[in-house]
């Protein structure tokens, strides 16, 4: 008997949220961290962008977590599904498992690193 795939539905919802995050928040992060700072382009500052964002305490840390976790989820989920469409259909289950493993570990690692850098995140300002 067919059954509503609840978990699948929720995971698709998260994937979709990740798509919005990667579209609206990721480009500026790539530009600041990966292009503008190393090449000395606008906005030129003394402090590197990652430190600047992290030193902006809660809101900066939250911005990084949402952007990185959302983009990672979206990117990995979509990429493993694309691989099944170009000849790896047989490895579908394995790709899904590896994909979710990378997503879970990546998001956990992001949270841990951010808290390590900014341990007071959960204490009130």
């Amino acid at each position: 008997m067919p059954k509503v795939a609840r978990l699948h539905a929720i995971l698709w919802g998260v994937f979709s949220m990740g798509g919005f995050i990667a579209a609206f928040l990721l480009p500026v992060l790539i530009y600041l961290v990966g292009i503008a700072y190393p090449l000395g382009l606008w906005p030129v500052t003394n402090e590197d962008p990652t430190s600047a964002i992290l030193n902006h305490h809660h809101i900066g840390t939250l911005f990084l977590f949402v952007t990185v976790a959302g983009s990672l989820y979206h990117g990995i989920f979509r990429f493993q599904s694309t691989l099944t469409e170009v000849g790896l259909a047989r490895a579908k289950r394995a790709l899904e498992a590896i994909g979710y493993l990378i997503i879970i570990l990546g998001i956990l690692a992001t949270a841990i690193y951010l808290l390590q850098y900014n341990p007071s995140f959960f204490s009130l300002p």
Binding site: V4, R6, A9, W12
Partner: peptide, 13 residues
Amino acid sequence: TKILGATNALKSL
């Protein structure tokens, strides 16, 4: 239909 499914699943959660 996907959006309906995701919203329903979230509601039931």
